[in-house]
């Protein structure tokens, strides 16, 4: 799972509406991928992602220390760093924990399991 995907995910347990995003990544394993750099694509992604959540997640994983707010001008160097963060990091296992209700979503073999049990829907 790439961090773009993680940035779109939200806890969907019934009644969980507070602190349900971003899900906290724990005990993760990472594999590095190689992706072709495309500055426009990265800029477009950034306009669609929640920057604060991205900064928080990359910080807690120890991957990068991004500024708290998205800079208005992105240097080439920063775009390349973001390219790496967004497209070249693949989370292969671990879990995502909701900070609102503590629900745990496991990630195995690169696949997040987002199913809930019947009583949680």
């Amino acid at each position: 799972m790439r961090l773009i995907t993680h940035n779109m995910l939200q806890c969907h347990v019934k009644g969980c509406t507070k602190d349900n995003f971003p899900l906290k990544l724990e005990e993760i394993e990472i594999e590095e991928l190689e992706a072709e750099f495309n500055a426009d694509f990265i800029k477009s992604m950034l306009n669609r992602l929640d920057w604060k959540a991205l900064a928080q997640t990359t910080f807690s994983l120890g991957i990068a220390q991004l500024p708290e707010e998205m800079p208005e001008e992105l240097s080439d160097e920063m775009l390349e760093q973001l390219h790496h963060i967004l497209l070249e990091i693949d989370i292969t296992s671990g879990r995502m924990v909701c900070q609102g209700c503590n629900h745990v979503y496991p990630i195995r073999n690169g696949i997040p399991n987002m199913l809930l049990t019947e009583s949680e829907v």
């Binding site: 939200q10 969907h12 929640d50 979503y105 399991n113 987002m114 829907v121």
Partner: peptide, 11 residues
């Protein structure tokens, strides 16, 4: 990812 159409895990 594995998810149910009736309860999607997205914002």
């Amino acid at each position: 990812l594995v998810a149910d159409n009736l309860s999607l895990p997205y914002r």
